[in-house]
Amino acid sequence: MARVVVDVVLKPEILDPQGQAIVGALGRLGVHGVTDVRQGKHFELDVDDSVDDETLGRLADTLLANPVIENFTIRR
């Protein structure tokens, strides 16, 4: 059994309105100097050793992320 982490973020060219809202809220905390925020998703998968990297890649590419608008990284 291993813990696999998949992080998904919107591609740089895709608008992230939630990130923009967070930038605005950070300003209201009195913190200045944060110029941009990109919000993403963090998945933690407990997987059997029998699940190979190719399969994990397929899971990320077909369900966890939408490759049309998102990039992902997998850490085993």
Binding site: L10, I14, L15, P17, Q18, Q20, A21, V68, I69
Partner: peptide, 11 residues
């Protein structure tokens, strides 16, 4: 269909 739908730009 190609493409995707994302959050409205005005939130």
């Amino acid at each position: 269909l190609p493409g995707a739908l994302i959050r409205n730009d005005h939130r």
